[in-house]
Amino acid sequence: MNIVNFIRLLEPRDPAFTQEVLYQTVVEQVKMMKQYYLNGRRLQTDWKPWNSWASGSPAIIS
């Protein structure tokens, strides 16, 4: 099984989903994937934001 996370920088449909909320969602998904030894990949709408968001990029989730 290979899990694919679709990652957004912005969610225009609901202002409650800030960049921080979206980022923390991915962080929690990665933690669970590591906990249960699940492999995965990410799809994202823009590469540039991840360079500035955090040093712990969710690219390493396998």
Rank of each mutant, 00 (worst) to 15 (best):
W53T: 04
F17N: 05
Q44D: 02
T25P: 00
L10M: 02
L9T: 06
W47A: 12
M1T: 11
P15N: 06
S55Q: 08
Y37W: 03
Q19I: 09
V27Y: 02
R41M: 11
E11V: 02
Y37K: 15
N5H: 10
K48I: 06
R41Q: 12
R41G: 14
V30H: 02
E28I: 03
W50D: 09
T25R: 06
E11S: 09
P49M: 00
F17G: 00
V30F: 00
L22T: 01
M33T: 02
S52D: 15
A59C: 09
V26R: 01
Y36C: 05
R8K: 04
Y23R: 09
Q29M: 14
T45M: 02
T25Y: 03
M33L: 15
E28L: 11
S52Q: 12
V26P: 01
V30S: 03
Y23E: 11
R8E: 00
V27N: 02
Q24M: 10
Q35P: 00
S62R: 13
S62Y: 14
I60T: 13
Q24S: 08
S52K: 09
M32C: 06
G40T: 04
P12V: 04
M1K: 10
V27E: 10
I60H: 10
T25G: 11
I61V: 13
N2S: 09
L38I: 15
Y37I: 00
Y36M: 08
V27R: 08
N2Q: 14
F6N: 09
L10P: 00
R41I: 06
